[in-house]
Write a protein that binds this DNA or RNA. Structure first.
Lengths: 215, 215
DNA sequence: AGAAAGAATGAACAATCATTCATTCTTTGC
DNA sequence: GCAAAGAATGAATGATTGTTCATTCTTTCT
């Protein structure tokens, strides 16, 4: 009996071969979406690979283990944020300290950083950091780096503006804690607080500290 | 053959019967310790019941499901915090607004609330709240309640002190976000920031806003 | 064109988890 | 003391998960 085998077969997706780095990024992106959608504890290798449009084996081929994939995902998000900060900190096209400060605020509470995806990932890892030293190390390294940069910037602003009775270190801790808290407020209770509202709160904080540098 | 059966038996713990409410609290306490120690995603019915010194079946007997146990644990921690705030807010033994404000700060950054256990539990649930509507509802209800109370208090302080150009609502959001961020800083990077340091940061925030009410 | 290299697959496996329930044990009311 | 009520147990179950690896499929190089 003759049969049109190819016609009766369900469509089979053609397998594509792509370089390792591209697959890794594809899987990291899928992991971010899964964590935001299902939460860290319900993010499985199945959901991630399905989200990425790949198979189970591919994830282990490129990341060896789930643990490693999660670590690399946290590292990616962390680096992305740090590089965004650094780019503004070191940018030479900005003349005034006030302009730099304003740009930093725009970045930290801007649309790129305050996407639900990104914030959900941050706090998913923060929530587990207490029990997982690896997460804690990555997160605290990021926080320390940011704190040092802001402290240096605030030092310059204090010198520039002749502000008195202000401690740059304490202000940096306060400002960065405020930003973290505002992210959390945006993530958990989106009805009470708009992004513009959060921006206004942070701006008011900086205005209180440096009235001659922030409107 | 005669055998000293009772002597050769390993010691068997005598089973104790306790009322339902006591067992529930015992299991909730164990859940808090497990979340702080193992993280939410590694907290299993096994680890919780072992930590509580009870058997697997007991947990399901009193809570029906793991999901329910986790919800009740979040509710307990939330209520504990809310009642602590309310007790100070409604206390009649405090004469001045300044004193009340100071007590609230002491409570929010005091030793009871800033135990590692408690903070780890907060952020474990916050981290999953993006994906679990139940957690989000409980958390956001707490946040809204706290924000309203602080807004009312700040309104009184503004009227009392004749402060101008300050918005009570915005200040309340800022202050509570700052507290959340400081908790996170205490939990993740305990070396950079002491509890006294965190308290100083929050105090500075309030001093900037209400210089005649906070030292 | 042909073959070597290695990327991709997913069924199968072993481990772990929440949940069930027949049984055992305490307490309480009489 | 005795029996009823129901609290406590933990082995067994079924579902889910991370990981493996024999096989299939693409691409590249000669």
């Amino acid at each position: 009996m003759f049969m049109a085998v190819t016609a009766s077969e369900p469509e089979r997706k053609r397998r594509k071969i792509r370089p390792r780095s591209e697959r890794r990024q594809q899987l990291i992106d899928a992991t971010i979406r899964c964590i935001a959608h299902y939460g860290l504890s319900s993010t499985t290798m199945q959901t991630v690979t399905r989200e990425a449009g790949l198979s189970l084996g591919t994830a282990n081929l490129h990341f060896d283990s789930k643990e490693n994939l999660l670590n690399e995902t946290l590292l990616f998000v962390t680096n992305e944020y740090n590089e965004g900060l650094l780019a503004i900190m070191n940018s030479e096209g900005i003349a005034s300290l006030a302009g730099r400060l304003s740009l930093l605020l725009d970045f930290q509470l801007g649309p790129s950083v305050t996407q639900r995806h990104k914030m959900a990932v941050w706090f998913a890892y923060y929530g587990e950091a207490g029990a997982r030293p690896v997460y804690q190390k990555i997160c605290s390294r990021r926080d320390r780096a940011a704190a040092q940069r802001f402290e240096a910037l605030f030092d310059s602003i204090i010198a520039d503006g002749g502000y008195e009775n202000v401690d740059a270190k304490q202000l940096a801790i306060g400002y960065l804690s405020l930003i973290d808290g505002l992210w959390l407020a945006l993530l958990i209770g989106p009805k009470d607080l708009s992004k513009a509202g959060a921006r206004a709160v942070a701006q008011a904080f900086l205005h209180q500290a440096f009235p001659r540098h922030m409107a």
